[in-house]
Design a protein around this nucleic acid. Structure first.
Lengths: 233, 233
DNA sequence: ATGCCGAGAGCACTGAGTTCCCTCGCGGGC
DNA sequence: GCCCGCGAGGGAACTCAGTGCTCTCGGCAT
């Protein structure tokens, strides 16, 4: 018995994360060695790498599970629901994970903003989410011309919109409504790429719509006008 | 004098890249140590890190210059040219760099596809391009509602389209027309977000256009129809 | 010549990640 | 009860990337 080492029943993984963040916050990421972390947690060095394949992983302890959740969510999609909406909803799963622990998420955000190595690592994490979304869309767009192109572009746009909203929420220290922010951002992407829920406004003639626009207007403005004309905005 | 060491006049940076790729191709990236590379190049270990901050950097020897070119290109933009078109053109700079050395680019592509560490590093390289594009768009969209959101999403879409086309070209071993592929991919993004060149087709009535569309069609299809109706596609 | 300077060589050190082996506790078969 | 296996953890030793430091050499100006 190491006096106090194996105290926590849940597992020592959590103890390692806690010890790591305590040191990262008071001393900085690069100034903290893995030996420091395991010393504080009272475990052996080898055990750290049992739970985290690298030092960076301890900063993103729950993304592996979240990615698995997202993949499961996409696999369980019905064949008749709108693909773009579906990937937007999948992205909301990630936001939900961040929103579950606001203080932890904000601390991590400050860390990743400062440390270039963590930014790079975060990119590879985000990339895996993006690939999961893109793979789903590629399958759904299998028949289309330029299906993989559209899948990749839409997945990237969804991730970018999600991250834009997420970071703006994180910058505000977790104040404000994260869901609303992300809904708004994803709405922009859906307006550009998706077919929207199309609430049937009965007074429009079915299957036909007429749009009038200045010819030199920027195309995104034209799109906005069309959206409102279609009752999709 | 080390018999044959300091042979190359241009500089030894190129010799290091050549030695590195020779070993990477015949032995694999992870199986090659920095000591192996400098031994083959006949230079001292410390000199390697003079030219390349990390082992990964030797795989992307020209991206630093290319990123600088892109930033310069964006800074030299006129205030009255269309932002989305401008970032698409900036992305083409990257393609041009790849197309200058097709065999090198294909070798590197095979390498990055196999080695997870290199994929991760490539992400951080791509991220810097994306940030450059996004910063430019943020400045151009400064007044707009959701300007930064649109900037981030469009930058991500441009990068995704560019990479989709680039990778398809690389997968074909550098056969085929890289420019045409990338033009097509970027055209899709411009159709979703940009205003197109608008070649004045005189026979349309000025300032007014009429569009007919199925109400449940995906929005991007509506956009395509509008573009062709406007003579912009 | 002398003194400066920049490029490179060599060396020692830190710290991440891995390999291999040891210990301990626990349950299950005999 | 005893032994055996087994899985979780501890810990030494190793490889290798990356950094800091010093020394040297070759040019160049004063």
């Amino acid at each position: 018995m190491k006096t106090e080492a194996a105290a926590a029943k849940p597992p020592m993984r959590d103890a390692l994360v806690a010890a790591a963040f305590q040191l990262f916050l008071e001393r900085g990421y690069e100034q903290t060695t893995v030996d420091d972390i395991v010393a504080l947690a009272g475990v052996g060095r080898r055990s750290f790498f049992r739970y985290f394949p690298s030092k960076e992983d301890v900063v993103f302890p729950d993304h592996e599970r979240c990615l698995a959740d997202m993949k499961a969510y996409l696999v369980n999609s019905a064949d008749d629901d709108e693909p773009v909406r579906r990937v937007c909803d999948a992205a909301r799963l990630v936001l939900r994970m961040y929103a579950e622990n606001p203080t932890f998420s904000v601390q991590r955000y400050r860390l990743t903003k400062k440390v270039p190595g963590l930014r790079a690592y975060e990119l590879s994490v985000v990339w895996r989410y993006e690939r999961a979304l893109a793979e789903y869309l590629r399958a759904r767009f299998a028949g289309r011309r330029d299906g993989t192109l559209q899948a990749d572009v839409i997945a990237a746009a969804v991730v970018a919109a999600h991250n834009n909203a997420l970071r703006s929420w994180l910058r505000s220290d977790g104040q404000g409504d994260a869901s609303a922010t992300v809904d708004h951002a994803l709405g922009y992407v859906q307006s550009a790429f998706g077919t929207a829920p199309a609430p049937p406004r009965g007074e429009l003639p079915e299957d036909v719509v007429v749009v009038v626009s200045r010819r030199d207007a920027p195309l995104w403005r034209v799109v906005q006008e069309i959206e409102s004309a279609l009752g999709r905005g």
